[in-house]
Amino acid sequence: MKAPSADELVARVPLLWRTLAAMLVLVGGLLALVESRAGILRAGTEIRLKTVPVDPRDLFRGDYVVLSYPISTVDGASRQGERGFRRGDAVFVTLGRDGEGFARATGVSRERPAAGPDLVMAGRVVSTGGCALNDAGTFDCSQGRNRLRIAYGLESYFVPQGSGRAIETTDRSRIEVIAAVSSSGDAAIKRLLIDGKLVYAEPPY
């Protein structure tokens, strides 16, 4: 006797139950994503980030700001015998702190560094080369393709309707982001401050 195929077994299940099962799978996936982000916000290590808002509005989803950070630009000079970084590479950026307590990038690698005192954040190379502001506040183009632009998933932040333009026009030296970084290196924005005062806080759910 021939055993029924998987398609035949599925076809025997009433349509209502199949629909409910599909809905439960979708809802379960969404809840897992929400809980993953909530876990980062709840238990992640907090870091302070200087930030530069770029773009003020998404007409379909309300106001938002596109943010850039000093740690978005990293010296990616490869070690001897290792090929250079390319756009799309997944990377791990090691973070230290500057004299003001803000995070600064101290290294980048394709493999997660061994456990140590420094925090490690996961990111992805979005471009190589180009110019960036140096410590003196002037544009430096000397590193060529060794300079990497890294995205961490912290580059867009939604704010209440009508607030994006006000943040976009605020001097960058006044804006600070508090982000949470999980043990795996994933990061999420927790709070946005201007002049050290809380402007927006991300709800846990």
Rank of each mutant, 00 (worst) to 15 (best):
V181P: 02
Y200G: 00
G144R: 13
A22W: 02
L133G: 08
I71L: 12
R145S: 14
F139Q: 12
D135F: 07
A151C: 08
A188W: 05
S184F: 01
A114E: 09
R48A: 14
R12T: 10
R165Y: 15
L67Q: 03
R191C: 00
L49I: 07
F60M: 10
I194F: 10
V74E: 11
D135N: 12
R48E: 11
Y69I: 05
G76C: 11
Q143P: 07
S156Q: 12
V13H: 05
I71M: 10
G137D: 11
C141D: 06
L67Y: 02
T169S: 10
S36E: 07
P117H: 06
Q80C: 07
R48P: 02
A90W: 07
G44K: 02
S109E: 08
G153Y: 06
V52Q: 09
S142C: 09
T19E: 07
R191W: 01
G28K: 07
E35T: 14
I189T: 03
S182M: 05
S127W: 00
P53Y: 05
P113G: 06
Y205C: 13
G130L: 06
G144L: 07
L41S: 04
E202K: 12
S109M: 03
V126H: 00
V199C: 02
D98R: 02
P14Y: 05
L20K: 14
G28A: 13
D63A: 12
S72C: 07
R149P: 00
I150C: 08
S184H: 04
G84L: 04
S183H: 09
G81C: 14
G101Q: 13
V66I: 09
I150K: 08
A122V: 01
T94L: 04
R112M: 09
L15Q: 14
V25C: 12
A132P: 00
V10P: 00
N134G: 09
N134P: 00
D118N: 11
W17L: 14
Y152F: 15
G164W: 04
L154K: 04
R79F: 10
V181W: 01
G116Q: 12
A188M: 08
E202N: 13
T51E: 03
A22Q: 03
S163F: 09
V74A: 12
P56W: 08
D186H: 11
G81M: 08
T73R: 15
V91L: 05
L20R: 15
S184W: 01
L9D: 03
K2N: 09
A179M: 06
A151V: 09
C131T: 10
P14M: 06
P204C: 03
L133F: 13
A105F: 01
F92N: 01
